[in-house]
Structures are given as structure tokens and as C-alpha cells.
Design a binder for these strands. Structure first.
Lengths: 222, 222
DNA sequence: GGCTTAACATGAGTCATCCTCAGGTTAGCG
DNA sequence: CGCTAACCTGAGGATGACTCATGTTAAGCC
């Protein structure tokens, strides 16, 4: 493992060279954007590094100067998605502090749904969580770890954002675990909701909310 | 799409030639078993058709005589897993008819957990549901459909197996939808449970049951 | 400007993998 | 034995991930 010493939380694992110059930074972002576009167009298995390079108008070698391999590229995009989602949560919960479990769930799911509708590649990637594409090849193990990390990160942030809601007889760890379970479950159900309807099946989205409210009601008050 | 006319429910889509002779049937099963073994050893992304052929001691061409492509091979295995799970449910619910939502959930999850612990490849594949590896390449679209089919099949079977539990003011379709949501959610949470602990994290398995009971309690009585 | 050195950029080429298909083998039959 | 049809086989074509030798630019120094 000759990974550079990077903070895992920032999702930079597998990154080969961080862009230092303005020109490089632009290329880096462009590659990531093209990657997201192509994921929407051809899906994960259809994604080729050559196609990314071509559309981003950079030689293939440049892609591999930033990203150790294809997985690292996709992972960097997932990390960006995660950061985006966390930012949205912080803002929304700051604007209208939730007064009940329903509020917490409504806001989180609404933001997630909005991202799926508008953010290129988000539907295919999510945060890289729950997918089978990672744990496969031994070399990709770090990706799995990061997926778990990402879900844990969201759960932790959700907990710190809604401390006043935690039931008094539930420990912090217990609440965080419940949130992690909720994350994973919601992710799967929403995946289902978007499978039939590209805008997300309204009925399934509603069911997803009911699922979370019913479960989290045991840990949260209100 | 030059797929042969096959019953989708039997999971034979993408199958090229169904084995007719005893000798062929043995080879067919052996290929599937080796595929399951290798999935456990090298994961999904690490699976190669050449390795399957070599370990099954058949020439590569023979693999492609039975299966249209690599996806079809993996899919056939997922279908076999599904059938296995359904058989187990029928048997268990027949032996000890569930008297409450808790019973239904307990039995289903216990069987699922047992399969994950004992059935080669099941941990990687599940029923092929909820994975990203399918919807990718346009040619693989039928796989996605079958995944959805598989989940629907389990949901439908679960409903018919536990009719007496359905709440009177919930329609059949509504109950089936709820079961499908529950399936998808449970799948994801159990995936999480087995990610850290190869035998399945007991705490997470318990949480999974709580999740389902809390949600399905709205549709089921008892 | 010249010279040296290091960082960066490039894309033709290497290697692994999926899948095909022309040719070979076996089996059935008169 | 000759003929046909079904079945079997694995070398090779096509594609795609990734490398690395070579070319280019920038930086420091006199």
C-alpha cells in the first residue's frame, strides 16, 4: 500500500497527485464532471477511462496522474457527492430546525431525492455505499472501507445535527447505530423508487419515509 | 434482443442452451458451483470466466454454450439462490406457522442469515438485487429487470404465505408493496451486518429485525 | 541568454479479459 | 462405411485498464 498520507475523511484515498496549479485543478474537476455524466449515460459497468479522457479532452495519461485507477476516480466522485449531501443537510437543518422525527426524515429524504434528480451520476453512485462493485478485487478493499466510512460519516453528522431529539434512555452509540441502519435501508428503498420511475416513484418515497419514522421513533422522541 | 423464449420466473433468461443430457447437466451444475466458490474467493469484480472454466475443468467454449455471457452466468446463480430461499421459507412457515409479525420476520431473517453463512457465493450475490453491477451496460438491462422480478417474487410469496396476518384495512397490493420495501431494506442492512463480521454482526441483525417489525406492524396485525 | 535539474504531460504499447467461430469430434442411422 | 447433425474445443480478435519512455515546460543559478 503506497498510498500517500491523506485524510481518509476527505475521500482522497487512491489519489495519486493532488492538483496544485489552477490549470491542473480545472482539469481535475472536469474529469470528475465528465465521469458523472458518463455514469448517467452508460452506467457503471459501461464506464471506460478512455471515454472519460476523451470527453474531458485530456490525454489518458493525465487521468492516471490524478487517480491511481478507475476505482479511485469513481471513489473521488462518490466522496464529492457525500460532501455535497452533508453540506445540504447542515444548511437545511440550520434553516429550519426539525422538531420531530418526521421533520428529520422529511428533510433528509427530500434532499437525497433532489440530488438524485439533479446531480449527474448520483443515481448510479450514491456515496459508493451498499454496492457490490467494491469489495470484489482485493486491491479495491480500501474502497469498501471508505463506503462504510461514508455511511458512518453521514450517520454521525445526522446525530450531531439533531441532538435534542435523542431519546434520553438511548446512548449516543445506539442512536448512531440506528441512524446508520436507517441510512442503509433508505438508500436501498430509494434505489428501488428510482428504478421504475426516473423521477422517483412517489409511493415508494412515501413508504421510505414511513419506514424510517417507524424505526427511528424507537430512539427519538417527538 | 435474441433471447430464447424462457420463463423469466425460472431465471433462465440469457441462457443459451439448456443442458439436455445427464453429462451436460452435471457440467452445468459444476460451472454454477465453481462460480459460487470463486465469488467468495475473489469477489464479483475479480471473477473471470477463464477461472471458472479452468476450475470446473471445462473448456471456455462450453461455458459460453450454456450462458450467453458472464452476466447470464452470475444471474443464473442468483436465480438458484432465490429458489433456494423461497423453498426454505415455504418449509419453515409450513412447519411452524407464524402467529405474529415478529415470527414472520424472525424466520425470514434467520433463514437469510443461515444462507449467508453456509451457501457459497450468496454473500456476494444475494439474489442479484440492489446491486449496481447490472444496470450498467445496455446489454445487461434484462438483468436489472430480473432483479426487480426476484424481489417482487419474494414479496409475493411472503404475502401468500402469511395471509392471515394482513391487516383488514390494507389492500393486497399495499401489503405486497410493503413487503417489497421491507425486503430491499433488510437486504441492505444485512449486507452491512456481514461487512464487518463474516458471521454477521448480532447487533445489526437484531436492529434489522426491529426495523422490519416496526414498519410492517403498520400493515400486519398481531 | 545559456546550462542544469526537476516536475509535468503525453499517447503508443503491454497485458489481461471477454467472447467468437472455424474446424474437429462424437453419435446416430441406413 | 458414408453421411448428417449435434456437440465440443481453444486459438485468436476485440476491447479496455494501465504503464512508462520520451518530450515539454518551468525553475534556479551563473
Amino acid at each position: 500500500m503506497e498510498t500517500t498520507t491523506e485524510s481518509a475523511a476527505s475521500g482522497a484515498a487512491g489519489l495519486r497527485r493532488r492538483p496544485m496549479q489552477r490549470r491542473s485543478a480545472e482539469r481535475y474537476e472536469r474529469i470528475l464532471n465528465v465521469c458523472a455524466e458518463l455514469l448517467d449515460e452508460v452506467g457503471f459497468a459501461g464506464l471506460t477511462t478512455t471515454a472519460v479522457a476523451k470527453r474531458a479532452e485530456v490525454p489518458i495519461g493525465t487521468v492516471y496522474q490524478f487517480f491511481a485507477d478507475k476505482s479511485a476516480l469513481v471513489h473521488a466522485l462518490a466522496a464529492r457527492n457525500l460532501q455535497n449531501f452533508l453540506d445540504r443537510l447542515v444548511r437545511r437543518y440550520g434553516e429550519t430546525p426539525p422538531g420531530s422525527v418526521e421533520d428529520v426524515v422529511d428533510i433528509a429524504i427530500d434532499e437525497f431525492v433532489d440530488m438524485r434528480r439533479t446531480l449527474p451520476g448520483f443515481g448510479v453512485l450514491d456515496f459508493g455505499a451498499g454496492s457490490k462493485w467494491s469489495e470484489a478485487d482485493p486491491r479495491d478493499l480500501y474502497l469498501l472501507d471508505d463506503s462504510v466510512e461514508n455511511n458512518t460519516a453521514v450517520a454521525r453528522r445526522l446525530r450531531t445535527l439533531t441532538p435534542f431529539l435523542a431519546s434520553s434512555d438511548a446512548g449516543e452509540d445506539q442512536v448512531e447505530l440506528a441512524l446508520r441502519v436507517a441510512m442503509e435501508a433508505a438508500d436501498a428503498v430509494l434505489q428501488l423508487a428510482f428504478r421504475s420511475d426516473p423521477d422517483g416513484d412517489a409511493g415508494l418515497i412515501a413508504e421510505c419515509k414511513k419506514l424510517l419514522v417507524a424505526y427511528l421513533g424507537q430512539y427519538y422522541v417527538g
